[in-house]
Amino acid sequence: MKHHTHAIILAAVLLLLALASGCSTPAGGALERDWRLTVNGTTEKVITLQELRALPSVTGYGFCVSTTGARFGPYTCRGVDLREIAALAGGIGPGQQAWVSAPDGYLWVFDDDQLDGKDFVTFDENLKEIPSPPLRIILMYEQNGKPLPYDDGGPARIAIVSEQPGVITEGSAWVKWVDRIEIREG
């Protein structure tokens, strides 16, 4: 009983220290509950994470590299194809672009060819360029079978995935913490 009481006091102290230090990342539950994705095209649609998860999903291998050569992955990625999401607001047609942004002020643009998985540079695990296998751009919400952690861009980030493991793509397009997708004319 005494041990039990000590454990509770220790847990409370640790919690207070964590809160006081202000170093905690946003709590997963609240973050997932409060997350909204705005999709703006010919119409505008706002969806929750639950609604995103209810859309048809794609699972594939994802692996990315930074501009200075730091590798992130490999991951098993699950999410929704960007074309599927664009369809919520009228779809994306030839010549149009998807402007994907996040609350940290980061923006990346994909054109309709890229939404078909074309025109990406791909590397093997030694960062040697290889011919690109078929790729898909998804809004990933699950990484390695678990909800995407905040530090990796959760609740939802862009991932470029393939059915073939070990294919690395350039990380600048892997937008973290996505909360807005706008369809624009190219």
Partner: peptide, 10 residues
Amino acid sequence: RDGSIYLISL
């Protein structure tokens, strides 16, 4: 390419 290391490698 995205950065110098990829250009130099190419």
